[in-house]
């Protein structure tokens, strides 16, 4: 999954991921530092990685729970830092 953080949005591609498969997130930033925090469908923080301009951080995770995962910015990035949220879905493979 390609992830890019910008003031104050996330671009995530693709937006749907298969369950029980190791996923590699390639996380970067287009302007300032951001923090890519992944919350599971129950609202628990299951991991995070920094999104840094000029670098790509690889995060590898396997999702066993299907549902909607929320992304929250975990590195202060400006006045709308707390509005920098997004989500992706994890579904069982057909």
């Amino acid at each position: 999954m390609k992830v890019a953080g910008g003031q104050f949005y996330w671009t995530i591609d693709p937006a749907v991921l298969p369950a029980h498969t190791k996923i590699r997130f390639d996380v970067t930033a287009v302007d300032v530092n951001h923090g890519f925090g992944i919350y599971d469908p129950d609202g628990r923080l299951i991991g995070s990685v920094q999104a840094m301009p000029g670098y790509v951080n690889d995060l590898r995770l396997t999702f066993d729970k299907v549902g909607e995962y929320r992304i929250r910015c975990l590195e202060y990035c400006g006045l709308s830092h707390h509005d920098m949220v997004a989500s992706f879905r994890v579904e069982e493979q057909a």
Binding site: F8, N33, E75, G78, S80
Partner: peptide, 17 residues
């Protein structure tokens, strides 16, 4: 309002704030 940690490049990228 870039935080006391002034992490580059936020102090110069305030989005007009």
């Amino acid at each position: 309002a870039a935080g006391w940690t002034f992490l580059w490049p936020l102090p110069f990228d305030s989005f007009g704030a």
